[in-house]
């Protein structure tokens, strides 16, 4: 807990010490961290392996982008509306996907994400097809607040969302609801036989996970100024899953570290080689084989020893 507070303080004063390009990277890392943390609820806490978490991100990104381009909604409200929509869509998706378990569940999440990808490509009037949505404004308001229009101001909005989501998730996984999720992770058949309606719990956790993943996406498109189909592509779903596993699944803060690590490495490696993904793949294999508990696990292992 002390480490979390320290990290929050360091992040809060970061804009005073870091140059502008670094702040841009850090903002994006926090957004991706929020996305990876949301996936951790499913993967790390419930053992629901989603190969389609880009769907949550893309849904959020396109929705907030669309609302900012075509309505006069202030930015925070557009972001919240996009997050709510992602959560609501997830209830329907999870209702279908939880008919299956294990690898079939994963394949259904992948199929759903690819479906959204195809929709984004074809529904030109709303999504802009292969051009995507461009020129998404960071509109001022509500109540005349203009803070989010500056880069640092937007960073604080992202940081606030991440910390809020973290506090929410932490409370959730330690609650009675979270204990049932852990039961589902370890032995779903037994959890069911104890009298828990496990499918409802799974649908609920997918909805929460998508709402938070949607929040991340909704924060991304006004930050970047655009939303395109890359955000919905299966490759991105895989990358988020890698962030969760490399960071340390089932810890919440691990996947945030994983996202930052992924971004940093992509940034550094791509300075030297075009095939940076190859090297990242090797690092990923290394983690899976030698440190399945991820970066966070490595850090705490060092502390305990």
């Amino acid at each position: 807990m002390r480490a979390v507070v320290c990290a929050a303080i360091v992040l809060a004063i970061a804009p005073f010490g870091l140059p502008l390009f670094a702040m841009t990277l850090l903002t994006e890392a926090l957004i991706l961290g929020l996305l990876a943390m949301s996936l951790d609820l499913m993967v790390g806490y419930t053992r629901l392996i989603s190969f389609g978490h880009a769907a949550a991100y893309g849904l959020g990104a396109y929705t907030s982008g669309y609302l900012l381009l075509h309505t006069s909604l202030p930015l925070p409200f557009a972001v919240l509306a996009a997050s709510a929509l992602a959560g609501a869509v997830a209830i329907g998706v999870a209702w279908v996907c939880t008919l299956a378990t294990g690898i079939s569940f994963s394949m259904l999440t992948l199929a759903f994400a690819q479906l959204l990808y195809a929709v984004a490509f074809k529904w030109t009037s709303v999504t802009g097809a292969s051009d995507g949505l461009a020129g998404i404004p960071r509109r001022a308001g509500p109540f005349g607040i203009t803070m989010f229009q500056t880069k640092d101001g937007y960073y604080y909005l992202v940081l606030f969302c991440l910390l809020g989501a973290y506090a929410f998730c932490r409370s959730l996984v330690r609650s009675p609801f979270g204990a049932v999720l852990r039961g589902i992770r370890e032995n779903e058949a037994k959890t069911l036989s104890l009298g828990y309606n496990t499918r409802l719990y799974k649908i609920a956790v997918v909805a929460v996970s998508f709402a938070l993943g949607g929040l991340a996406g909704a924060l991304y498109s006004p930050f970047a100024g655009f939303a395109n189909t890359d955000l919905l592509f299966w490759l991105f779903s895989g990358q988020v899953l890698i962030m969760v596993i490399v960071g340390g699944q089932g810890t919440l803060h691990g996947p945030i570290l994983g996202a930052a690590f992924f971004m940093l490495l992509e940034h550094v490696l791509s300075l030297y080689t075009e095939s940076w993904a190859l090297f990242f793949g090797l690092i990923f294999i290394g983690f899976v084989m030698f440190a399945p508990e991820g970066i966070w696990g490595l850090l705490t292992r060092r502390v305990r020893a």
Binding site: S175, P176, V180, G195
Partner: peptide, 22 residues
Amino acid sequence: CRLSAQARLARRWQPYGGQAVF
């Protein structure tokens, strides 16, 4: 045993806190 007993409590799904339930 705690998770098993929790299944019989009315607030078994409570998504926050939980001192009383636990």
